[in-house]
Design a protein around this nucleic acid. Structure first.
Lengths: 202, 202
DNA sequence: TAGATTGTTAATCGATTAACAATC
DNA sequence: TAGATTGTTAATCGATTAACAATC
């Protein structure tokens, strides 16, 4: 089951995937070679890869194409998943225009905003709906994921709305801790805090 | 010294700061109250806060205003730090327009792009310069931080440029691992990977 | 005083690294 | 074969949690 993988390992899987995809030569690659390229321990690489269906071969390592397939399979890149964005400000629009989600089988299907100037527009080919219609639209669209790009002051209320519409996974860019019921998973990305942490290091 | 704080603790400090700022009542707050509000252990809260200059008082806890000041001091919110953005695409423009950096004493002073249609424009009141002039402008501006919002294919080259201009701290949004010399710190934010990780959880 | 809280030391837990047998 | 690599078990390391003396 996926729940037994440490989050630390799970977070490294996309790093391996990006690296392997960036390679041009096919054939085999060893855990040691991956470890050297990414600046980490080779046992850790093998342990992480062992959570996927990847099978290394003694003496040669992992077949690059197989390893990519195993990582993609584990990360669900082949399952199509719909995501919606709340808040069509600059960040929300940036995510609507970003094409990197498709690598992971994620499709941004719509955004919601309370600004009537934005409602009815399209960004990156995706519609911006009125947040008032969110409950109804979410029933129609039935997305698995919600991304919150709203101000901190309304993030909890928006989270409550999306949870009531059966979304269990929320990526939150607002600098506020969301209180959610059991079974709902929140991941937070606070860009300003990240820059401050970076600035504080060493 | 700051280098002896675990990164895990450092990453929680902005969470405490956000929470404390969100409170309206002044006076004292205990580590237990903070822990309950944020869903964590109270000893961990005390340990984390002990890295700052905060002084709790037995029987009552921490004076909210003092604790905020201690966290802001530790995180360097009172030191003005200049940051530049590379890549004035949607994400870069979103960060130029974002006003949350000032909470941490960070000022975005400029962006660089190779698109002549963007060069010379202003976003959020900040200029977009030609990436060709980056080396010269970086000498003038002398920023401490660089944020990379460029495509993965050019991220390493941009990183090399900013490092050669004496920037030691890089926040990288490109889904690629940057190779940097000792003494340079990179933090990565891969939004698509974060959404994929979230989607894979439980 | 009694009780609540801090700050710190000791114990536990979990993740990383080391060691090594199995394999080809 | 010898040597390189995987996969796994044991050891280490570091972070979190528990225990508790000190304080007011």
């Amino acid at each position: 089951m996926k729940s037994d993988i440490p989050v630390t390992s799970l977070q490294r899987l996309p790093v391996y995937l990006n690296y392997l995809k960036s390679l041009t030569s096919d054939g085999y690659i060893s855990s040691g070679a991956i470890a050297r390229a990414l600046g980490m321990g080779e046992v850790l690489v093998r342990k992480d890869l062992a959570f996927t269906s990847a099978q290394g071969r003694t003496r040669v390592g992992y077949l690059r194409t197989e390893l990519i397939a195993a990582l993609e399979d584990y990360l669900g890149c082949n399952d199509k998943k719909k995501a919606v964005i709340f808040g069509a400000g600059e960040l929300g629009k940036a995510l609507m225009s970003y094409n990197g989600f498709s690598n992971y089988g994620i499709e941004i299907v719509a955004a919601f905003d309370n600004d009537s100037a934005k409602v009815g527009t399209y960004v990156g080919g995706k519609p911006v709906f009125d947040v008032e219609s969110a409950t109804q639209k979410l029933v129609e669209l039935n997305p698995r994921l919600a991304v919150l790009c709203v101000p901190a002051s309304v993030a909890q209320a928006v989270a409550d709305t999306v949870i009531s519409c059966n979304i269990k996974k929320i990526l939150n860019f607002a600098p506020v801790l969301l209180h959610v019921e059991d079974g709902v998973i929140v991941r937070n990305i606070d860009v300003a805090a990240n820059l401050a942490i970076l600035s504080s290091m060493i």
